[in-house]
Simulated assay, not measured.
Amino acid sequence: MVTTTQPAARRAVRRAVVVGTGAIAHSHVRALRALGDRVEVVAAVDVDADRAAAFAAEWSVPRTATTLTEVLADGPVDLVHVCTPPSSHVALSEEALAVGATVVVEKPVALSLAETDRLLDAERASSGSVAVVSQHRFGSGVQRLRALVQDGSLGRPLVTTCLTQWYRADAYFQVPWRGTFALEGGGTTMGHGIHQMDVLLAVLGPWEEVSAMAARGSRPTQTEEVSVATVRFADGSLASVVNSAVSVRETTVMRFDLEFATVELTHLYGYGDDDFRVTAAPGHEAAVEAAWAREPQGVPSSHRAQFLDVLDALDGGGVPPVPLAAARDTLELVAAVYESAFTGKAVRRGQIDADDPFWTAMDGTGAVWR
């Protein structure tokens, strides 16, 4: 009998455009270049032509433009990476969806739930889709923890601590779009803590109710510098969430206390497997050790890890992660933190609808310090 080996299917080389050439755009291109010949960055777009040119020269990008419209008119584009300030995310994403491109957009995806729902409508009408950058979901440690929580290997979640304690000096807020609800959508909750709150939901699943407070006072900003929230999840577990832009010793800490183990993750802006500490409950040491030794292993949180999954999804005909609907769940929690902080009332999941002022703006009826 003669056997033959079929050649592997050739993967398409994806054509990518980067819109916005500030600091985060460099992270995007660096991550894309690390994926080899699976993707080609064909253009860089920025309203500042000189900045676009400098970016293109640094990364050997062949085309620059001051509008996405110019580049889309050149021919087919597979991926549009939106790296602009938050207030422009939705309009740029809609433009890319209109030609059937896949959008990879930085957090926050929109300034409000209303804008997010508008973008969901555009996505439904398009052959393309929206993937929201949520790089901390894609490290092997969080992926493994999520799987172990879902299959019950570590027991029921009981209480979780989620701390985003960062430091931003006055100069940080001199960038015109920062520190305003109108252009940034919020303060440290929306811009910083949203990353860890996203991991919280990825691991623990749906939230049910939140009570929160927020404060401002030492930075030149219209938004909060600190927020503190208590979140109840659908499984009955509780989480304490702290977001800060005034913590001189910066740290990012997530601690999951489950029936059979405590899992702690301590890092700053990105983590690896070594940043996790697992403590088993008495009598569960062997089972917990065996569970934590499972795959995946060895993948740090990064844009590269998410972009690899995006390309794999496109090649397989699937929806790239993290889909817009999932990102909306995280944004709804952020909106609920603001509503609770500014109204003094607990907010339930699903409560913020089109009749609620916090659906159209994160400061809703107005920040308490106005």
Rank of each mutant, 00 (worst) to 15 (best):
L154V: 09
T279H: 11
P76R: 08
H284I: 01
V42K: 02
G20K: 02
E115V: 01
V132Q: 01
Q150H: 15
L111W: 05
V61K: 00
V263S: 05
A287L: 06
A73L: 13
E106N: 14
R216L: 09
A336H: 04
L35V: 03
T251F: 14
V103K: 10
A110Y: 03
T188V: 15
D356I: 06
Q306G: 03
G364F: 10
V288L: 03
A31T: 06
T4I: 13
H136G: 03
P7F: 00
V90N: 03
I24W: 05
G139E: 06
E225H: 07
R216Y: 08
E225M: 11
V39L: 05
S301W: 04
G270K: 08
E339A: 15
G36H: 04
G141P: 09
H28M: 10
P76F: 05
E250D: 07
H267Y: 15
I194E: 04
P62D: 04
A171S: 14
A280M: 09
T188A: 10
L158S: 09
T365D: 15
A125Y: 05
V246P: 00
V77G: 00
D37P: 00
L204C: 04
G270N: 07
S60Y: 02
R348H: 10
P220K: 06
R294W: 01
A214K: 00
G270M: 06
D74F: 08
Q143Y: 02
D356V: 04
V199E: 08
E332A: 11
V71Y: 08
L120C: 08
L258E: 01
L163T: 11
A114V: 05
R370N: 10
A56M: 02
L331H: 10
E332D: 12
V368D: 09
A125V: 09
H303G: 07
A114K: 12
